[in-house]
Amino acid sequence: MILFFGTRSGKKETKTLYNVSCPHCGQTGTLTAVSQPNYVHLFWIPVFKLKTSQFAECSHCKRGFYKEEFSPEMERAI
């Protein structure tokens, strides 16, 4: 019997963070947060969620922020 298993990325969820200022340039309302889950799959069917990757980007200064770099203000908005 042959089993096809592995990991695969899920669907990206994008959210604009209104009333949150960028920690780098100070502009308000320019941050966009992206969340993408990773799944373990069996025969291309997702079985369970492994982890979720999160990052944010400022559309003004183009600075990216990993989850570890999120300010408390960004954490509350998500």
Rank of each mutant, 00 (worst) to 15 (best):
A77V: 11
K12A: 09
A33E: 13
L17P: 06
G10I: 08
F4R: 15
T32E: 13
I2M: 10
S35V: 10
T30P: 01
I2G: 02
V40G: 07
Q54W: 05
L3W: 10
H41A: 09
T14M: 12
Y66W: 11
F4S: 14
T7N: 13
C25K: 05
G26R: 06
T7C: 08
M74G: 01
C22W: 03
F43D: 09
F5S: 13
G26W: 07
T7I: 10
S21A: 14
S59P: 03
G10M: 08
K62C: 03
P72N: 02
K12L: 06
E68Q: 14
H60E: 15
E13C: 00
L42C: 09
G10V: 08
T30V: 05
E69F: 00
A56S: 12
H60F: 09
T16G: 00
T16E: 11
N38A: 06
Q54A: 08
Y18M: 06
K15A: 07
V47D: 04
A56C: 10
G64W: 02
T28A: 10
A56M: 04
N19L: 01
I78S: 04
F4I: 14
G29R: 09
S71K: 03
V20P: 01
W44M: 13
Q36H: 04
V34K: 07
F65S: 02
Q27K: 15
S35F: 05
W44C: 11
A77I: 12
F5P: 00
W44P: 00
K11Y: 09
F70Y: 14
E57H: 06
Y39P: 15
Y18K: 14
C22V: 07
Q36R: 15
E13R: 15
E57W: 03
V47E: 03
V34Q: 05
F5V: 13
V47W: 14
E57R: 10
H24C: 12
V20C: 02
S35N: 06
C22P: 07
M1F: 12
K51F: 12
F55G: 04
M74Q: 03
K51I: 04
T30W: 03
G26P: 08
S21T: 11
E57N: 07
M74V: 04
V20T: 05
F65I: 00
H41T: 06
R76M: 08
C58P: 03
P72V: 01
I2E: 12
E75Q: 14
S9R: 15
L50F: 10
E13T: 15
T52W: 07
T32G: 00
L3Q: 11
C61G: 05
K15H: 12
C61Q: 04
N19G: 00
K62M: 08
L50A: 11
T14Q: 11
P46H: 04
S59M: 10
E57S: 09
C22E: 05
M74A: 04
